[in-house]
């Protein structure tokens, strides 16, 4: 496996700029808007399903008793909403194939 760096917002904006010809500023804005709309939907309790990519699933977890691993003291863990991601079969296949 060759070692590659970490992809960031800036890289995504660069690719949009190069492949679509949108200005760098507008490309960066589009990347931000995509993330913003997905975040807004999830904040409103909606799952986000992107065909060919995967599904962002919200799960509500009830209160449970946890333990401070350092002190061993029991503490309640408050109910919370967590976000999980289920990759599409297409993404899983591409990762196994390595391309």
């Amino acid at each position: 496996m060759r070692s590659v760096g970490t992809l960031t917002r800036a890289d995504l904006a660069d690719t949009v700029n190069q492949q679509v010809g949108l200005s760098r500023a507008d490309s960066a804005q589009m990347v931000e808007s995509i993330l913003g709309h997905m975040t807004d939907a999830m904040e409103n309790g909606e799952n986000v399903k992107i065909s060919g990519f995967g599904t962002f699933l919200l799960r509500d977890k009830g209160e449970r008793i946890g333990r401070n691993p350092k002190t061993g003291v029991e503490v309640p863990i408050t109910p919370r909403r967590v976000l999980t991601f289920r990759a599409s079969q297409m993404m899983k296949d591409r990762i196994i194939a390595g391309n």
Binding site: R2, L12, V16, M90
Partner: peptide, 30 residues
């Protein structure tokens, strides 16, 4: 069509980087 192409690029680039063995960090998102 242009908007759709941008959305495709966005998700495709993420999958591509993972397939290449890299990671993707989107601050504030995940």
């Amino acid at each position: 069509e242009e908007v759709e192409k941008i959305v495709d690029i966005f998700f495709n680039q993420i999958t591509q980087r993972l397939a290449e063995g890299g990671r993707v960090e989107l601050r504030g998102f995940g």
